[in-house]
């Protein structure tokens, strides 16, 4: 099951990277997010899986797709100049980072296979809610304020005659 969800996630991400059409790329991103939420289920965390589906594949990707259609930017515009140095440099940076981090993951003592498997009991919304309101009430209020502020900011930014 882990392998299936991992393959779904990776193929969605790779298809998004390779895709020329931006709308199709957004749909590939939805596929990748659904794979990630399946992985959260494998981690016996259904709360995070539901949040992932609702917020990411529900809200954020729909917002991105709306903007793509609003701006009529279905295709990437042709390049002004090739900028081959930057492109190869970026590819090199990505490759070096990937290989280096891969080596680190392979040699890290913290990731050694555990002798005892942890007890798996699924996360419940009740636990999260209790912990959130008892321990992080101030942060919870602050995040509400932040959401309001960003909503107002987004409306102001797209206002025509500011």
């Amino acid at each position: 099951m882990f392998l299936i969800f991992a393959l779904i996630t990776l193929s969605g991400a790779l298809a998004m990277f390779r895709q020329k059409n931006l709308v199709v790329a957004g749909l590939c991103l939805v596929l990748s997010f659904i794979g990630v939420s399946g992985l959260f289920l494998m981690l016996s965390n259904p709360v995070a899986a539901a949040l992932q589906i609702i917020v990411y594949s529900g809200a954020i990707v729909v917002l991105v797709l709306f903007v793509i259609m609003l701006l009529n930017a279905h295709e990437e515009e042709p390049a002004v100049k090739p900028r081959s140095i930057q492109r190869w440099g970026s590819a090199l940076v990505v490759a070096v980072l990937g290989v280096g981090a891969f080596k680190l993951v392979g040699s890290s003592p913290a990731l050694r296979p555990a002798n005892v498997r942890p007890v798996i009991e699924p996360m419940t919304l009740e636990q999260v809610g209790n912990y959130l309101v008892q321990q992080h009430l101030l942060a919870f209020e602050a995040i509400g304020l932040l959401l309001l502020a960003s909503m107002v900011a987004a409306i102001l930014l797209v206002k025509r005659d500011l």
């Binding site: 903007v67 636990q127 999260v128 932040l146």
Partner: peptide
């Protein structure tokens, strides 16, 4: 587990803010 899921909640709230403001900037 519980701390991490709460933290995840905060992360996606901030990501939603980032999505709204970023898309507004692109528009």
């Amino acid at each position: 587990d519980v701390q991490a899921t709460t933290f995840y909640l905060f992360i996606i709230a901030v990501a939603a803010c980032e999505a709204a403001v970023g898309l507004a900037l692109i528009v």
